[in-house]
Write a protein that binds this DNA or RNA. Structure first.
Lengths: 144, 144
DNA sequence: CTAAACCCTTGACCATGGTCAAGAGTCAAG
DNA sequence: CTTGACTCTTGACCATGGTCAAGGGTTTAG
């Protein structure tokens, strides 16, 4: 069992708690999203609960459409002991700007889609479907 | 030259007009997004201007966040004269719902980030930086 | 002690959406 | 006719984000 509130989890315990696969954890480690953990005498990775949190953070960020590369940078904020708080705050601001940018892009997409849907009667001849027309829909080649 | 208003374009002419790469056209053909075109005696693909339109359709749909799989379905629907329009509209609606969902998630993250930035003094000890704390940022293991 | 369940590493494999290269044929200009 | 630009096919390759398998060692319950 590993029902303990412990600071000592195996990779499987972390995986279960964080809701990710074991292979995913090792993959993230290779990719530099997770620090190389301590090892037990057996060679087993030895994690604390903080890794569970970190993995949940990654999952949330990924769900929001951040790439792993972006997540890596985001996480780097938390280990950037050298450059001080200003730099951390600054980089968080950059992230915020990127989030805003992403929101604007999605809103543009939304407007486009909404206009098409509003204009579509939902029935009738395909020739008159504004969705297909707006997308430039032409017939398939009929080269019998 | 191929400045003609013609119905006879080579793959390169189509590519230039549609703003995609030649390889992309052949790729789409393989993937079933474009019908296999007529061939000239030489074996060259022989396209009409309708293919330019179709490629633009694909590009716009992709810009709206449809995957190629979804685009393939849309194109298939547009040739299904019987029960096309409702399906097309329905799919656009599904796509819109997805976009809205993602926007909401991003807005949630934006609020979170903004609060952190507002709360961060921009100086002082890193241990007290609310940004790092909220990221679940723990120190990298110091296993010297 | 044994067996199940876990962990280790290396390295292959998957889908997505292309992009590029090799080797060969075709076409248009000069 | 030759040259250069274009096309053909096959098949490899790229990045992203994992996932699985093989062939081991470890840990723990019974």
């Amino acid at each position: 069992m590993d029902t303990q509130t412990t600071q000592h989890l195996t990779i499987g315990g972390v995986a279960r708690r964080a809701g990710v696969g074991i292979d995913t954890i090792r993959y993230y480690e290779r990719e530099g999203l997770l620090p190389p953990p301590r090892r037990r005498a057996s060679g087993y990775r030895d994690y604390g609960l903080d890794m569970v949190e970190r993995l949940r953070f990654i999952r949330r960020a990924k769900d929001l459409g951040f790439t792993l590369e972006e997540v890596r940078e985001l996480l780097a904020l938390s280990t950037d002991r050298e450059r001080g708080v200003e730099s951390v705050k600054q980089r968080a601001q950059v992230r915020l700007d990127q989030v805003n940018q992403r929101i604007r892009e999605l809103q543009r997409m939304r407007r486009g889609l909404q206009q098409l849907i509003d204009a579509c009667p939902g029935h009738g001849a395909l020739e008159h479907c504004p969705i297909l027309r707006a997308l430039g829909g032409e017939e398939t080649h009929d080269h019998a």
